[in-house]
């Protein structure tokens, strides 16, 4: 019973933790950005799961349908996805600049270069 009621959230947590793992493991900056994206998507999945109502249809008003999913999380996540790609682009641009300035995007090498000056 408990599993049936909550498994969705547990998988969200697992995805979130995989994203977090990729981010804190360090190493390549682009890999970190991909990890951050996994983390971000897991939050999206969480919000959409919270907005789901059993038997509810998509929130577009139709004759004869009484039960709808919660539209508010949909609005929040819809805009968050597009904002997410814009900020990802900014992060990738930063990675390109770091590559040009340091010649590498491996975190360890960047720190070594920094401590030398």
């Amino acid at each position: 019973m408990l599993v049936a009621a909550l498994y969705n959230y547990w998988i969200v947590i697992a995805l979130m933790m995989i994203g977090l793992f990729v981010v804190i493991l360090g190493g390549n900056l682009v890999k970190k950005i991909i990890g951050l994206n996994i983390f971000q998507t897991s939050v999206f999945i969480f919000y959409i799961s919270v907005g789901k109502v059993d038997g509810g249809s998509a929130p577009i008003l139709t004759e004869g349908v009484e039960l709808y999913s919660n539209p508010l999380p949909h609005v929040l996540i819809l805009t968050a996805i597009v904002v997410g790609i814009a900020t990802t682009a900014l992060a990738l641009a930063l990675a390109i600049r770091i590559k040009q300035a340091y010649g590498t995007i491996e975190e360890r090498d960047i720190q070594t270069r920094d401590s030398q000056c």
Binding site: F44, I45, I48, S49, G51, K52, G56, S57, A58, P59, I60, Y68, S69, P73, H74, I77, L78, I81
Partner: peptide
């Protein structure tokens, strides 16, 4: 998201 009924998302 489609399965969850969040078509716009």
């Amino acid at each position: 998201f489609m399965v969850m009924g969040a078509v716009d998302v």
